[in-house]
Amino acid sequence: MAALGDLIQIDDGTVLVCGQELDVGRGQPDVANALVHRVGDTLVLVDTGVTAAFRAALREATERVGHWSRALVLTTHGHLDHVGNNDLADELGVPVEHYVPALDLDQMRDPASYWVRSFERIAGLAPLPAPPVLAGQVVSLFQPMRPFGATTRTYEERPLEGIRIGSLRFTGWTFADGAVRVLRSQGHCAGHVIVHLSDCGVLHLSDEGNGPCGAMADADQLKIQTVLGAVALLFEEGEATLLTDGHTFAVRRGAEVVPYLEGLLEQATALQEAALGLTGESGQVRPSAFTTRYAEAAAELGVGGANPNAMFAAMMAVNQLRELGLRPESGDVDAPWSRPPLHNP
């Protein structure tokens, strides 16, 4: 099991810096993995994690990849565990560009409000404090939190590009003469991107593979599943050979990648089928009861995901109800959910 700050050497110019899992009870923030890569004379950092210890590991990794005279810092999305050390860009001592997704700026500026919105949906569904209290507790774990630097800009300030990789077409942005491709995915949260490093064959999925059902309020289940299928095809066509992500602390290579991604897609369909069965013939269910049974079904199916806990299980359950087309019948805590009538009464 990797420990916080462990370095996995992928090749002479590429290092995966390992993070850690979330443990709110122990006051431990989750820290996302980061990629450190050199292409030509350019240092590429994909995410910066959080905590001073992880920052030190990032600095060590930048010394392992060879000489560089400029730097490119790429933020895959605005969640706290990915952005806390972004101001490291200001300390590299070379010309730097730093890009973040425009759709995630609000949560980066005001993470407490973002998490309150996510937790309000599960009030009463899990034995958790009130949403503002819980959001404050979670956000306070991620220190120091410096998501912006002097050079920070949004990707969307650059012209959007059509990017062809093998038989697939994406939209996004390219850097380092096309060796670094930032591809829009927007499934795990509103602004999410994935990163393809073509010269070393690495595809960094970041958090798009965090389980078969996205948990956050701005998650898009269709986009998650679409990007998993697209990335599997990139590996089938040999356009990528190594898969990294934000939270599994490993490098997946070659033939193991496609079965892994197909497994996530199979889990998504199996979990949705199980959820459909839990709503019963009436199509009406109380979310508290559904959440308990949904977590049991996920365990029976062997469905995991990053940072499994009651909080994220409840968030996934609410998203799954919406994915099935159910809506709350009122604003009361634990009000029944059902399908809206197809015809006006």
Rank of each mutant, 00 (worst) to 15 (best):
A126E: 12
D177I: 00
L141C: 04
R184G: 06
A190F: 01
L128E: 13
P131D: 02
D177H: 10
T154A: 10
Q186M: 07
V138R: 03
V180L: 10
V133R: 13
I194C: 12
L160V: 09
E157D: 15
L168T: 03
G162I: 13
T154V: 09
P129L: 07
A130Q: 12
I165F: 04
V195S: 06
A150W: 03
G191T: 11
L168G: 02
P159G: 07
M145H: 15
G166F: 04
G191C: 10
R184H: 05
A130C: 01
R158Y: 05
E161C: 07
V195G: 04
G178D: 13
V133K: 12
Q143W: 08
F175I: 13
R181I: 00
A135W: 05
F142G: 10
P131V: 02
P129Q: 10
A179D: 09
Y155E: 08
R164A: 14
L197V: 01
S185Y: 01
F175Y: 15
V193I: 13
A150Q: 14
G187T: 09
M145Y: 15
L134T: 08
S140Y: 04
R181K: 14
R164M: 01
L183P: 02
G172N: 09
R184K: 14
R158Q: 14
R158G: 03
A150I: 07
R146I: 00
L141D: 07
P144G: 08
L134I: 10
R158P: 07
G187P: 04
L160M: 02
L160F: 05
Q137C: 01
V139S: 11
R146G: 01
V139I: 09
R158N: 09
V182Q: 08
F175P: 11
G178P: 13
A190T: 08
R158A: 09
P127Q: 06
R153W: 08
F170P: 10
A135R: 07
L168C: 04
G166T: 11
L128T: 13
V180E: 09
A150E: 14
L168K: 08
L160A: 04
P131Q: 02
T174Q: 15
I163W: 04
I165Y: 02
V193M: 09
V138M: 01
G187W: 02
G136Y: 00
I165E: 14
Q143V: 15
G162M: 14
I163T: 05
Q137I: 13
E161H: 09
T174L: 05
V182K: 07
L183T: 02
G187Q: 05
I163C: 02
I165K: 03
L128V: 15
S140T: 00
